[in-house]
Write a protein that binds this DNA or RNA. Structure first.
Lengths: 210, 210
DNA sequence: TCATCTGTTGACCATATAGTTAAGTTTTTT
DNA sequence: AAAAAACTTAACTATATGGTCAACAGATGA
């Protein structure tokens, strides 16, 4: 007990610092890109001396790896599963709902992910090649079954997934543009619901489910 | 005549070099980001000595400005106009068609644009605040009229524009991911048509136009 | 109290990079 | 052909940056 308490205590300091660093680093990586984000700028944002940053993470690339790992975890949690028993309508509704909420809740994750892909997915190629490809194949097959059963219109399932990804992530990645165009300073809670119902409506109709 | 010929000649050398530099710079900026793209790397890609790059463009930021200007010109040309006389169906068809073709033809422009927006649109805020906002307002009004006339379903015109932007640009920006997932090396000509017909079909249905 | 482990930090270094300069070469003009 | 303008480029400079190190501080356990 005494032992575990002590471990927890030191562990907390570690985790606290690491978290502070990762948050600061995420912001810097989004704002300045990988090369543009300097260890010093991350340190400044985290209110820690540079050497302290490099005590917790051996080097800049390791910080980035940790940020990416966190991003992928978000992606994984936020994807919202598509279950056979839901049927196409509920499945699409849940999927869109999860992705939109994720976009509004963790825009930095979406942005870091987007920048990685745009720049050629150097660090994520394996992820896309294995995990993601498998995920898309599986879900596409599911949609295809629903199509074959006449439960939804005959639309290309893979492109359908791309459509849902792109239209939902857009609100995170292009936040700046969207807010500027709508002449607003920030998103509000009701925006999430508006977007969900707009996209759900459009896409369900596109799939002949409404 | 002699005079104009000579001017043209020198002008050509200038333009040729500048173009070579801008192409190389675009690639580097996409691949490495603004800070990550070094003048040397641009020089290498353009097969010119570094000092020569800086003879044509006073500094790195000027290169970037020139690249962005080119990007915005692409955006402007590729947006495809939305005309009142087309009616909603043809208008949406034309709009999607233009955007998708642009995405497949000039993915680097789309990528540079996307990275700028994701990073906070430091260099494009004015563009979005004036030109783009006006464009969206105008086109949204047009859609609203069609809606009021009962020519299309009552969907939020602004979000409709966002949907078309996001879903079409996705094929440029997330090229790497899409190709990896589809287990392909490159896009083919027929992909453009597939995407156009998929998105047109989905979105027209969403708008009750099919 | 002493020893050890964890964390903190200023000072330092090697290197990469943006940008300058000066000495050229080539092209254009007169 | 001579002068001027446009272009080319190696060498250099100042600075920013990633990363190391060594000295120190604080907690923990015996």
């Amino acid at each position: 007990m005494n032992n575990s308490k002590e471990i927890k205590k030191t562990g907390n300091i570690r985790l606290q610092s690491q978290n502070k660093i990762l948050m600061a680093a995420s912001t810097e990586f989004v704002l300045q890109g990988y090369r543009g984000a300097t260890v010093q700028s991350i340190a400044d944002r985290a209110n820690l001396p540079k050497a302290n940053i490099l005590y917790y993470f051996k080097n800049k690339e390791n910080i980035y790896h940790a940020v990416l790992e966190h991003t992928l975890q978000m992606w994984d949690e936020g994807i919202g599963d598509i279950n056979p028993e839901d049927g196409p309508k509920a499945a699409i509704e849940k999927f869109i709902d999860a992705k939109v909420r994720m976009s509004f809740k963790h825009p930095e994750s979406s942005k870091i992910y987007a920048m990685e892909i745009i720049q050629g997915a150097q660090h994520l190629k394996d992820f896309a090649r294995t995990y993601q490809r498998k995920w898309v194949r599986e879900k596409a097959q599911l949609f295809q079954q629903w199509i074959d059963n006449g439960e939804m219109r005959d639309v290309d399932p893979v492109h359908l997934i791309f459509l849902i990804w792109s239209s939902t992530q857009h609100y995170a990645d292009f936040e700046t543009q969207i807010l500027t165009i709508m002449n607003r300073a920030d998103y509000e809670d009701e925006d999430v619901e508006t977007v969900i119902s707009f996209l759900t409506d459009m896409i369900l109709r596109g799939c002949g489910l409404k």
